[in-house]
Design a protein around this nucleic acid. Sequence first.
DNA 1: ACTATTTCCTGGATGC
DNA 2: TGCATCCAGGAAATAG
Length: 272
Amino acid sequence: MPELPEVETIARGLAKRVTGDLIESVWLGQKKEPLKSPATEIAATLEHSCIASVRRMGKHIVFDLVRNASKPKPAQWIVHLGMTGRLQVCAAQDEIAKHTHAILKLKSGRELRFVDPRRFGRLSVAQAGDFAAAGVEPLEVDLDRFITLFRGRKTPIKSALLNQKLLRGVGNIYADESLFRAGIRPRRRATTIPRERLGKLLTAVKEVLKEAIALGGSSVSDYVNADGERGFFQLQHCVYGREAEPCLVCKTSIKRVVIGGRSSHYCPRCQK
DNA sequence: ACTATTTCCTGGATGC
DNA sequence: TGCATCCAGGAAATAG
């Protein structure tokens, strides 16, 4: 389940491999769910465009496209991987995986393929600059801005952290790990948390995300980066996926509860 | 303006 | 072995 660190890792890997390549043609599958923009528009935008750069915005991967004289306006291809989406750089003769929804033929002879069994991923195109994901980047936000995000919100802090309109890129794993490090229970109402404690939370969020990026993300199910390699941050998880195991700090049994439909893990002793 | 709930999907795990 | 059922989860849609 790619969250910010995984998407960052994938975007960096893709940037290394496909920057400067030219998209010669595009095939799109028949399933409509993965496409947010009309298929004809996606194909027309991608074909004959050069990939100028690949970067992450929240949980989205943005391909900046430079185009030829007949279509001079720069555009963007925006990919959200959802739960199980993958972007593979393949040799043209490589077997086409089940659940392949898009294939971009590149001038280098390789193919960039979008594979997504669960079809929660989304593909779209936009004119350069038109795509503005809501919310602030957690690695860039300052404390004052961070505090205002939660002002007056009665929702549990866990739900607020997952709300992409507030903060973009934090998902279930990193929300739980950040709350553990900050000593805050996931059900705690956001508006009741004092400024000082929100400061701890922001520090925790940034540390967790940076450490996870450094380790190539968390591979909890089948996540692999653009080079097919697993991440290693799952080895650092203190609470996520550790229900009934002892807290690494105080040995208390880790609890799992459901908040807003999301499983949430915490230490009842370390988190208040 | 918020918040809570439901919906979309398939593969893997579980239960009988 | 086979079949049914449940669960995971991001974000959009819907309802309150």
